[in-house]
Design a protein around this nucleic acid. Structure first.
Lengths: 205, 205
DNA sequence: GTCTATATCCAGATAGAC
DNA sequence: GTCTATCTGGATATAGAC
């Protein structure tokens, strides 16, 4: 009956979610080529062949993760852009939040590593390549917009806004990867050191 | 005769250098697992099997490249530390130099990507793992020393020197990777935006 | 749905002719 | 030294029993 079908659907999606979570861990740590289906299956405690009951191929899992990771990142950035605060405050908030997240969230760091690994690789599934091409630049563009607005208000330093956005993201990204690849994490540096880069008037809280 | 042996030796080393150069390109772009011996062989224009006349295995090539990359990076850092200039000037010089190098040198960016890829991977040949463990932290430590000296002279901002060193390297590294993974390179941002992060008195050249 | 067994393919490494 | 041909292992994906 319909009730049972619903339940089955739910079970199936839970299983898929488990597979995705395990795959994210492994793809983030080892990349696509070095991660074996067998490893993922062992990670979730099922037989190797059973994975194919839930996903048609290793690459499909990978592409789905990449897509989700990019969307998540972009959604967060759009949220930031839509806030009512003035641009310089947005930058300060964003950096503080990112550092906190890097410190606390394994999932976020894995997401960063996944995207970084994909961006750094020239051999990706065609679908992943396309997604990256389409969605990867959005955070840079949105941030550049915020920087430009801040320059209009005289709170952000004079420089090419896109270059400022690049500095912003490469810095945050670099820290996330640093943290994710160290056995013992270091405390994140004070956010003001980073956001003072962009501010006309330094903040010494 | 000895003359011929010398010549043969030289030829052999040249071939090995060609293999290393091609392998660096490919490992940097694709990582260890996704790079096939066949690709490297094709890149240098020799038969797949012939590679094994020059190197015992794919992993051996990789380990040699990792070792060389780490040594090159560390040598540059020791050079910087040994210079007579005051710490704040060293920081400014170092950032300016790095940005110039990122802009100009493909080889340097490939080296960055190789190290970053290795650091980001949890499945490395044992020998590579060991090398990374031993040599990877040196640049951070040396930079921390310079930061600390600058704090003593009152030119570098107050903060944990190691955290400052981490910011320094993750920023530079992030930019190098950004540049290396874009089809059309962007102009590097002005160095002062970056080094002003660390300076008590901002520099507005 | 889940497992075991297996077909198939691909890539690392070796052998042997030239 | 260089090539082609081949051995071998491992990994993806499928088949079929339960």
């Amino acid at each position: 009956m319909a009730r049972n079908q619903e339940q089955n659907e739910k079970m199936r999606e839970e299983r898929q979610a488990m597979i995705r979570a395990e795959a994210l861990r492994q793809f983030a740590a080892k990349g696509l080529a070095a991660t074996k289906i067998k490893d993922i299956a062992e990670g979730v405690g099922m037989a190797q062949g059973l994975i194919y009951h839930y996903y048609p191929s290793k690459e499909d899992i990978y592409v789905e993760l990449i897509n989700h990771a990019l969307d998540k990142m972009n959604e967060a950035v759009y949220n930031l852009a839509g806030m009512p605060e003035p641009p310089d405050v947005k930058i300060k908030m964003a950096i503080s939040e990112m550092l906190k997240t890097i410190d606390a969230s394994r999932d976020f760091n894995q997401t960063c590593r996944l995207i970084a690994g994909a961006a750094n690789s020239s051999v990706l599934p065609a679908a992943a390549q396309e997604l990256i091409g389409k969605k990867r630049d959005i955070p840079y563009q949105v941030l550049a917009g915020i920087m430009e607005a801040g320059q209009g208000e005289g709170t952000i330093i004079a420089a090419d806004p896109y270059e400022l956005a690049v500095i912003f993201w490469t810095t945050v990204n670099g820290l996330a990867i640093y943290q994710a690849t160290r056995p013992d994490p270091i405390p994140m540096p004070p956010a003001r050191i980073l956001y003072n880069m962009f501010l006309v008037d330094r903040d010494n809280d």
